[in-house]
Computed example of a mutant assay.
Amino acid sequence: MAFDPLQERGIPLDEQMRDWRELNVTPIDPDHADPYTRCRIITMNGIETEAILFSHQLARHCPDTELRRQLARVRYLEAQQQRVVNWLLPGVASVLETTIAYEQVAVDLTSWVARMEPDPYLRQAYQFGVLEDFDHLYRYANLYEMIEHRKAEKIVDNLTEVMPGRPTYLHHRDPMDNVREPYDRTRTEPLSRLHALTIMAAEQQTMNFYMNVGPMHMEPIARQLYQEIGLIEEEHVTHYESLVDPGESWWEMLLNHEYNECYLYYSFMETESDPKVKNIWELHLGMELEHLRLAAELFKRFDGRDPDQVLAPALPPPVTFEPNKAYVRDLLSTQIDYTTLGTGYVREAHERFSKMQEAIMGGEQPPSERVIDDNRAISGQDYRFEVEAAVSR
């Protein structure tokens, strides 16, 4: 039977506050956990972080003190959720190991969304981005082998391949060409709204992570690689956030955020292999159902519409982390030479792209190329992890 979050009872707000003992969750074991459990954790960290940041922005534009108090109350509970989710990550994992997991999220989550996206223009946006994150995974995997003397295949398991995508140095585009056309809120499928919010939040979290952890490395090549890819993640956030219709009201955006949180917690509860983590997804879903109910009341009050006018009547099929090897390889064979021009895509370099390349490179080889050369010099070859027969989707 279909799950309709608007018809389900959540945990009353007064019962959602947790103490330190409840917040101090035991992290997953990086040596034995399902890699996709870690991917789900990273994804929900990004989703909760976006929820918190959006609520702060809404509060800063809201003149009603009582409404700001309600937002603050829910936001504090979202902040507790974010800490619980993020604290599931193991402290024994290095920054680079977590980075590789972030890129595995970007590859397999974005691939899944692209496969499920009903709108051809939006689907193309996800296909374009995934080939760049795929190459970032390859660059970081080489850095990992070079400075930690370990193989990324231990982190991604047999689920995601590690090999070159669209070369990272070609990702530096004029900012004007990172802005896409938004979906039309009056006509788009509810699923497309959820996809856009999900990938925007995931990429935003990656951008924030890299801009903060990059300078924590001692090795010059590591600091430089994080700086380069971190700037590309800024481009990706622009790319994905521009897909969201800016004509949505604050209350419609709040409604979509809360519905999307319900969708993802429900999805991960349904697909999680770790019982302990599954229990957290289930608990947080119960909390989010109440957050959604409150957002729906505000939407009806200030927009004068029923939530059913913009939300799906029931949740779509669950978001699923699964291998996408053949799908990515197909994109590599057909779209690796794409770049952007205006709100569209072209195969050849153009004047703005060439000027950006000249400006950012400064006549020097970029860190993303040097890390491959440096690893070849140390290891005898660049690091790749390819599956002989890529038969998965």
Rank of each mutant, 00 (worst) to 15 (best):
W251N: 03
E261M: 12
E297F: 02
D245P: 02
L294C: 04
M253V: 04
A296C: 11
W250P: 12
L264F: 00
E248P: 01
N260A: 11
N279T: 09
R293M: 03
P246I: 08
G286V: 10
E270F: 00
G286P: 05
Y265Q: 10
L283N: 11
V277G: 05
M269K: 08
Y263M: 07
E272F: 00
A296F: 06
L294P: 04
T271V: 05
Y263F: 15
H257N: 11
Y259A: 09
R293G: 03
L254I: 02
S267M: 01
E290A: 08
S267P: 09
E261P: 00
L283T: 13
W251L: 07
E258M: 13
K300A: 15
E270K: 15
W281P: 00
Y263P: 04
L285V: 08
E288W: 01
F299C: 10
V277E: 03
S267T: 10
E282A: 15
N279L: 10
L292D: 08
E261R: 11
S267W: 00
L254R: 13
N256S: 14
Y263E: 10
S267E: 03
W281D: 01
W251D: 04
E288S: 13
F268I: 07
W251A: 03
V277D: 02
L289K: 03
M269A: 14
E272L: 01
I280Q: 07
A295I: 05
M253P: 02
S273G: 08
P246A: 04
L254H: 13
Y266A: 13
H257K: 13
E261Q: 14
L289Q: 10
